[in-house]
Amino acid sequence: MEATQLNPATHESTAIVAGGKEYLTFTLGSEEYGIDILKVQEIRRYEKVTHIVNAPEFIRGVINLRGVIVPIIDMRLKFNLGSAEFTPLTVVVILNVAGRVVGAIVDSVSDVVHLSHDAIKPPPQFSSALAVEFIEGLASIDERMVIIMDIEALMTGQDMALVDQAA
């Protein structure tokens, strides 16, 4: 994705260090997730959406993002996490994946962290709300476990019903 810096010492400020990436972490219920920050376009407050007819329940609807129609997915409904209630902390993470703009509702965003490749451990074989193929790995930040999610694979996946599936 981004050019790997040859001399990390002089580029500390940009925090792009060889072999690592920056991740945006957010919470869904009691779990904490991280996604590649380069896929994040912006973070917005939740505002009223327009319902899409006959759409799956986790697709709340669409919003007008400066003239672009953007579908909004409620990640909590999608993964049956948390109560899917709207609090002042509830935000919409606008993502840029696979050439599409999609919004994801999360309970709150926590932080932007830098993780080197080594810090991300492969996920163990378990069944989670999130299908294993969408988990890049697990990372520990200050005793907290962060699930690193392959958001692009998730959003373009079949069960998201965001894209037309070839018949």
């Binding site: 899409i52 007819v53 669409v62 007008n64 003239g67 999609v102 019903a161 037309d164």
Partner: peptide, 18 residues
């Protein structure tokens, strides 16, 4: 406004507007 640029085709809907 095109819906399909960020979403799929919705039956019965041709486009959206603001």
């Amino acid at each position: 406004k095109n819906i399909e640029s960020n979403y799929r085709k919705v039956q019965g809907i041709s486009a959206a507007t603001i």
